[in-house]
């Protein structure tokens, strides 16, 4: 059979009959994030709500929602646009903000205190920001952790990728942190960039781990099991 005949018999008829169509945009109130996993004591509240509710897997977090972890606790928060995962470690408070911008969500998180590990996929046009009392960090795609100390100082350490940071106090210094490095923004707004210390690397490593432990307490009413998040030190 000639090639031309093959074309006529196969391809042209194959293309006929297929049609395309266009329809309308979906409406809806889509959460910014979801609780993917909880260990021990995790609570959340919606914007404007005064009381904390116990969180459970699958809880939706909308703009202005907050997640709080207790001692030895852990929460995994998954962004609904597929942009990444946050690991909220013990005794931390995470505020989540998100604005729908066509087919993407501009995300901002405010961290009052505690340590948050992050795995953020490469952002195309959408924004992904971390804000703390002393700094703001814009993320494009990276793996690392951000920690807010009791004195409001901020530490950002990266395993890979890059983050643009700007201090919100003092002379509002700015800089770029890349993989293997750590930025420390002190309460006065001074920015110090250094190679990640052993402690930073350990924190990065333990943040990536999701190791939990369980204790079983025998009581007259039956066994009581408590699962808790292990940081490796206990």
């Amino acid at each position: 059979m000639k090639a031309k005949n093959f074309l006529i018999v196969f391809i042209i008829p194959w293309l006929i009959g297929f049609t395309s169509d266009q329809n309308l945009l979906l409406p809806g109130d889509t959460p910014v994030a979801l609780v993917k996993k909880i260990v021990k004591d995790v609570s959340y509240k919606k914007a404007g709500q005064s009381d904390w509710d116990l969180a459970k897997t699958g809880d939706a977090l909308f703009d202005g929602g907050q997640v709080k972890t207790g001692s030895k606790s852990l929460a995994l928060v998954l962004f609904t646009d597929g942009s990444g995962l946050l690991k909220v470690r013990e005794n931390a408070v995470l505020n989540i903000y998100g604005q729908r911008n066509n087919k993407q969500i501009d995300k901002n998180t405010y961290i009052d205190k505690g340590l948050i590990g992050f795995e953020v996929n490469k952002q195309e046009d959408a924004e992904f920001k971390f804000t703390t009392p002393t700094a703001v960090a814009s993320i494009r795609g990276t793996l690392g952790f951000i920690e807010v100390g009791s004195d409001s100082s901020t530490t950002i350490s990266l395993e890979n990728g890059s983050v643009e940071i700007q201090a919100l106090r003092g002379n509002r210094g700015s800089g770029r942190v890349t993989g293997g490095n750590t930025a420390r923004i002190d309460p006065l707004g001074n920015v110090n960039l250094n190679a990640a210390s052993d402690e930073d690397r350990k924190k990065n490593s333990t943040t990536r781990q999701l190791t939990t432990k369980k204790v079983k307490i025998k009581t007259p009413q039956g066994d009581l099991e408590i699962e808790y998040y292990s940081t490796g030190n206990n």
């Binding site: 979906l26 979801l34 699958g58 998954l78 609904t80 646009d81 087919k103 993407q104």
Partner: peptide, 19 residues
């Protein structure tokens, strides 16, 4: 079973999709 979470996002889906 308690940890199971199935979640599908249509935020970036085209307009002709019926979720």
């Amino acid at each position: 079973g308690e940890e199971l979470l199935i979640s599908i996002s249509f935020i970036k889906a085209p307009e002709n999709i019926d979720v």
